[in-house]
Lab assay of single mutants.
Amino acid sequence: MATGGRRGAAAAPLLVAVAALLLGAAGHLYPGEVCPGMDIRNNLTRLHELENCSVIEGHLQILLMFKTRPEDFRDLSFPKLIMITDYLLLFRVYGLESLKDLFPNLTVIRGSRLFFNYALVIFEMVHLKELGLYNLMNITRGSVRIEKNNELCYLATIDWSRILDSVEDNYIVLNKDDNEECGDICPGTAKGKTNCPATVINGQFVERCWTHSHCQKVCPTICKSHGCTAEGLCCHSECLGNCSQPDDPTKCVACRNFYLDGRCVETCPPPYYHFQDWRCVNFSFCQDLHHKCKNSRRQGCHQYVIHNNKCIPECPSGYTMNSSNLLCTPCLGPCPKVCHLLEGEKTIDSVTSAQELRGCTVINGSLIINIRGGNNLAAELEANLGLIEEISGYLKIRRSYALVSLSFFRKLRLIRGETLEIGNYSFYALDNQNLRQLWDWSKHNLTITQGKLFFHYNPKLCLSEIHKMEEVSGTKGRQERNDIALKTNGDQASCENELLKFSYIRTSFDKI
């Protein structure tokens, strides 16, 4: 039985969820670079991206490699990797027998973001014989899940209580170790020597080791999670996991709180800001991140802002960003909400898709409305799209047979046209069989910064309504002859009103 693990408890099935942008060198404390989270699957090609990484700022997932063999891993080693800020997950990587050479110096898994409450997941690794993470000293947050690894031993010899604050939620089941077939031998045991430290858990006094050649490092209890030197002297209180010299914040392997210019500090002093819960960055760093993602459509890219001495992905609820200094300031009234469309555009074809934009005031991208039916549609669209004030790209209304009016965009005031449909149009209306009105132009103002209007096959939309939009939106004169079809717009509506004058002759039985 794995020490510190839980057996036999019912657990939810383990679901495996399925960018080499360097964020800056980590400095003297770390020998390499800070790398983003990685999802490495199918083959070993991307694994080489770990070569210079000291910190993975995010998670590391290595999974679904069915053609790899043990010899493929023999020359692979990433000794610079010290810390993973989120979680480490391995799933069905064939041929991998140990992690001792792959990650010989991995010391800390912070667990800032977890995989279903777990910071370390080893699942269905069919050839893994031992973990071998002999320098792993601290899992700051989260638990361990090690399950269905039929060859995995050296679990009962690990004292997880020396690595985690609590072992109650560890789930370590259905491994070879369960069948008591392992016969784990710690260093020196074969020669009758006791080389590794022994600890007591559940009444068992057991030597602690990761492999037959690597003991588990056990520091004096007084050192807590700070770690200790090879001689057993406690590291500085700002260290986490390990250090090369005692009581020196510049000799830590990793930091308990924050890293700044080669030393570990309790908090980031001005003019620095907390970033990702582990390091200090200056304003320029946060500003660069903001600008890199301002026009990016890459998933996970955030326009970072500053709030409460932190550089964070977005302002919290009730705050909006001051564009001059990136500071989050309290909103006066309802907060603006910028919604970034991942692929640059979004099609609204149902109430469900409209709900995804609920509360958005600025759309960074283009909207395509293609709704053919739905219950209580006008009210639903207004509830979900009615706060949109600005669209950076274009607005396209296409084959939306259920629409009679666009009044559900009740606050839309600006279409920038930074991206144009077919390279020309910022407003595009095609084949809307029941569209009769755009907006009530006596109450609604709309500016279209650039781009043209396109109207074709809107049989109940009168040309007068379209011409009014040209005047109000500032697009009059931009359109070419064929942009607004004269014969297919309003051709099934009563669009022309003329005053009919009647004269009559009164007659009676005795007068003409």
Rank of each mutant, 00 (worst) to 15 (best):
H28C: 10
L29V: 07
P31G: 15
P31S: 15
V34Y: 09
D39E: 15
I40M: 10
I40R: 00
R41P: 15
R41M: 12
N42C: 08
N42F: 09
H48K: 10
E49C: 15
E49L: 07
L50E: 00
S54V: 14
S54E: 08
E57A: 08
E57T: 05
G58E: 00
G58V: 00
H59R: 08
H59W: 05
H59F: 04
L60G: 00
I62A: 01
F66T: 05
K67D: 08
R69A: 15
R69E: 07
R69F: 09
P70Q: 09
D75V: 12
D75K: 05
L76H: 05
S77Y: 14
F78M: 08
F78R: 02
F78P: 00
K80R: 10
K80W: 05
M83V: 04
I84S: 00
T85K: 05
D86W: 02
D86S: 03
D86Q: 10
D86A: 02
D86H: 15
Y87F: 02
L90G: 00
V93S: 01
V93T: 08
L96F: 02
E97H: 09
E97V: 11
E97I: 10
S98N: 08
S98H: 04
L99V: 09
K100Y: 10
K100S: 14
P104S: 01
P104A: 01
P104Q: 01
L106R: 00
L106P: 01
L106S: 00
T107E: 04
T107W: 05
T107F: 05
T107S: 10
I109L: 07
I109V: 10
R110D: 00
R110Y: 03
R110C: 08
R110K: 07
G111I: 01
S112L: 14
F115Q: 03
F115I: 14
F115G: 00
N117S: 07
Y118A: 05
Y118M: 12
V121E: 00
I122D: 00
E124T: 02
V126I: 07
H127T: 13
L128T: 03
K129C: 07
Y134D: 14
N135H: 06
L136D: 01
M137I: 03
M137T: 10
N138S: 14
N138M: 11
I139T: 02
T140S: 08
R141M: 07
G142T: 00
G142E: 01
S143L: 09
S143G: 07
R145G: 03
R145Y: 10
I146L: 13
K148G: 04
K148L: 15
N149R: 01
N149F: 03
E151C: 06
L152I: 08
Y154M: 08
A156I: 10
I158T: 13
I158C: 04
I158M: 11
I158G: 04
W160V: 01
S161A: 15
S161V: 08
R162H: 12
L164T: 11
L164H: 10
D165S: 09
E168G: 03
D169A: 07
Y171A: 12
Y171L: 08
N175H: 15
N175L: 12
K176E: 09
D178R: 08
E181A: 13
E181R: 04
C182A: 10
C182T: 09
G183K: 10
D184T: 05
D184G: 15
C186S: 06
G188R: 04
G188S: 10
G188C: 13
A190K: 06
A190R: 12
K191L: 06
N195P: 08
N195A: 12
A198M: 11
T199Y: 06
V200Q: 11
V200M: 10
N202F: 11
F205R: 02
F205G: 10
V206K: 10
R208S: 15
H212M: 05
H212R: 08
S213W: 04
H214M: 13
H214T: 10
V218Y: 06
P220R: 03
I222F: 08
K224M: 04
K224G: 10
K224W: 02
H226F: 15
G227V: 09
G227L: 04
C228F: 03
T229W: 07
A230M: 05
G232L: 08
G232D: 15
L233Q: 12
C234Y: 15
H236E: 06
S237P: 10
E238V: 02
L240D: 09
L240W: 01
G241H: 04
N242L: 11
C243Q: 00
S244I: 14
P246L: 03
P246C: 06
D247T: 03
D248C: 02
P249V: 02
T250V: 07
T250G: 04
T250D: 02
T250Q: 02
C255Y: 01
C255W: 00
R256H: 04
R256G: 03
N257K: 10
N257C: 00
N257I: 01
N257Y: 06
F258N: 02
Y259V: 06
D261F: 01
D261S: 03
C264P: 01
V265L: 08
V265S: 04
V265D: 00
P269M: 11
P270M: 08
P271E: 02
Y272A: 01
Y273A: 04
F275M: 04
F275Y: 09
Q276C: 03
F283T: 10
S284E: 15
F285E: 01
D288T: 05
H290V: 09
K292W: 07
C293L: 03
C293A: 04
C293M: 00
S296M: 10
R297P: 09
R297S: 08
C301D: 03
H302L: 04
H302G: 12
Q303G: 11
Y304K: 02
I306M: 04
I306F: 14
C311F: 01
P313K: 10
E314Y: 04
E314S: 07
E314P: 08
C315F: 00
C315N: 00
P316L: 02
G318H: 07
Y319L: 03
Y319H: 07
T320D: 09
T320W: 09
M321E: 01
N322R: 06
S323Y: 14
S324H: 10
S324D: 15
S324P: 14
N325P: 04
C328V: 01
C328Q: 01
C328E: 01
T329A: 07
C331V: 14
L332Q: 07
L332C: 08
P334V: 15
C335R: 03
